[in-house]
């Protein structure tokens, strides 16, 4: 296990998820420290997305402990977990196609979430500037007035990252952010995530090993729902078990 002396923000222990007898997660344990940037890699079907589903309340674990700070996530629903400060970007970019990019960012913006609060909501100049700032960061300034549904796949990836930034969560779960991005954009994303980490904790799932290397962080390798190896990118790339899993396919 990782060194125990830190300040864990996310704590998974012995987590299993069974779908119709198939173990998508098998006794998985994982600790993420406050401010840590962590990459998760693993072959298709390893359970990476399922792990995020468990953390965000989409899927209930069959067994095991899932804690965020002192909160037991297995007892909370998606909205409550998000409100605690866990934001997520989905593997397949998901947003609200009928709304503009601006409106998508506005909905994500950290603010009271009740119906009456939303009815009374007034877009303050400060919030507008913040949305415009995020739009600049994600390169969508000129597309703010366009419906999300007409954006390209890469732009949708960016928009969802932007929504994540607007939410201002303590823990960001980012599932395959650079699929569909150009090399330059990929570099920009790595740069962005490195900047966010430190103040925030970030868990990134990615297949692109160049990108993972650029993140320069601890890497966890998942396979068949369990942790196979953990350490620096060089360490895991030279781990015979990891080589076997990746080459054996």
């Amino acid at each position: 296990m990782s060194g125990g002396a830190g300040n864990p923000i996310l704590y998974l222990d012995g987590v299993s998820v069974v779908f119709d007898g198939f173990k998508a997660l098998n006794d998985l344990s994982l600790i993420v420290e406050a401010g840590e940037l962590r990459a998760i890699i693993g072959p298709n079907g390893a359970g990476k997305t399922t792990m995020m589903d468990v953390i965000t309340g989409k899927t209930r674990p069959t067994a095991g402990t899932v804690r965020f700070r002192e909160h037991d996530l297995t007892r909370l629903d998606e909205a409550a977990i998000a409100t605690l400060g866990i934001g997520r970007k989905f593997q397949k970019p998901t947003m609200f196609d009928a709304l503009t990019a601006f409106e998508n960012l506005e909905l994500a913006c950290k603010a009271p979430r009740g119906p009456l609060a939303c009815l009374r909501w007034v877009l303050s100049p400060a919030t507008r500037r913040r949305i415009e700032g995020v739009a600049e960061e994600i390169g969508l300034t000129s597309r703010l007035g366009d419906r999300a549904g007409v954006l390209s796949h890469g732009q949708r990836q960016w928009l969802e990252i932007g929504m994540l930034l607007m939410q201002d969560p303590e823990l960001l779960l980012v599932d395959e952010p650079v699929a569909g991005m150009t090399d330059q954009e990929t570099e920009h994303t790595a740069d962005l995530l490195r900047r966010i980490a430190g103040e925030r904790s970030v868990v990134v799932v990615e297949h692109d090993l160049e990108f993972v290397r650029a993140l320069g962080c601890k890497v966890t390798v998942l396979c068949e729902g369990a942790m196979l190896s953990e350490g620096s990118i060089d360490h895991v790339q030279n781990d015979p078990r990891v080589i076997e899993v990746y080459l054996g396919r």
Binding site: T56, K58, D77, E78, A79, A82, T83, G87, R88, F90, T94, M95, F96, D97, A98, L99, E103, E106, L107, A108, R113, G114, P115, C118, L119, R120, W121, M163, Q167
Partner: peptide
């Protein structure tokens, strides 16, 4: 209002709205 946009979001992608922290049942 923003409530109107939350409702449209619920109409089109209810579960995604939850992951943004909105209590869909309340809305």
């Amino acid at each position: 209002s923003k409530l109107g946009r939350v409702l449209v979001a619920i109409r089109d992608a209810e579960s995604r709205v939850r992951f943004l922290g909105y209590d869909v049942t309340q809305h």
